[in-house]
Amino acid sequence: MGKYAFYPGCAAKGASRELYESTIAVSNRLELDMVELPEFSCCGAGVLEEIREVLDIVVNARNLAYAEKAGRDIVTVCSTCLLVLRKAKYLLDNDDDLREEVNEILIEAGLEYRGTVDVKHFHWVLLDEFGEEGLKEKVTKPLSGLKVYPYYGCHTVRPKEIIGYEPSENPQSLEKIIKAVGATPVSGERRLECCGFHAFWPAPKISMELTGLNLKDAKREEADCIVTPCPLCHMNLDANQSRALKEIGENFKIPVLHVPQLEGLALGISEEKLGLKRNIVPFKTLGGAR
């Protein structure tokens, strides 16, 4: 079993705390060796790069350095944190001049980046540690009959040079998780489309339109719910659902679960521990599938 440093990211520590709660609950139930490092800072969500590229990389080299100190691979539950941390690592590992420059800055804080830890997404860890079959064996309450829309969004699959866990053209990790919990993945034309979250402030109309179209696709596939590995996608799909649907002239409700919430339900963890009551569109609206 790997040793992991939990990097929740700002969303899971704030507006998506149900993601934090469910991740901890699942990790405990599966007895993962995963601890949160209190030194971790916000990754900057890629926007620090817009102030200065080196600022973005230094902030994340610091995060990586603390994980190295603890001898633990970083595990995050946010797709954008995943991309930003992996990108910093990719640049540092492939550019000696940059690594030297960044280490000269880190030394001011008594830290060093050596490149000894990896950065993974929580659902990759579930699959890598237990496999689809192993996860199936852990299930106590199979979610039979539940049709789930696997919504990847962007940053757990793209760009392949930095993420590279599975083919970005046709990823299957979420489908594997959905099958492992006894549910059925529906095929989704928009499963790899963007939710528009990162353009929410400058272009709310585009952001809401994209989210609306994604929700509509899930409805068209007759999914009972959507599952996503990203709290930012979740914010748009769940918290902003009514606004997004209004933008495209639709009006319906579809629950959106975080990956650990779906996994946790199948492991028999209580709805309270999974923070289900915090989802804006209640999962309970689901008809008869549970």
């Binding site: 209190p38 030194e39 971790f40 800072s41 102030i51 200065r52 080196v54 600022l55 230094v58 902030v59 610091r62 603390y66 800055i105 880190l106 001011e108 804080a109 008594g110 830290l111």
Partner: peptide
């Protein structure tokens, strides 16, 4: 966060 001062230090130098 814990060790916030190390973050401030590296951000300052990076800028």
């Amino acid at each position: 966060i814990k060790e916030h001062e190390t973050l401030l230090k590296v951000m300052k130098v990076a800028m």
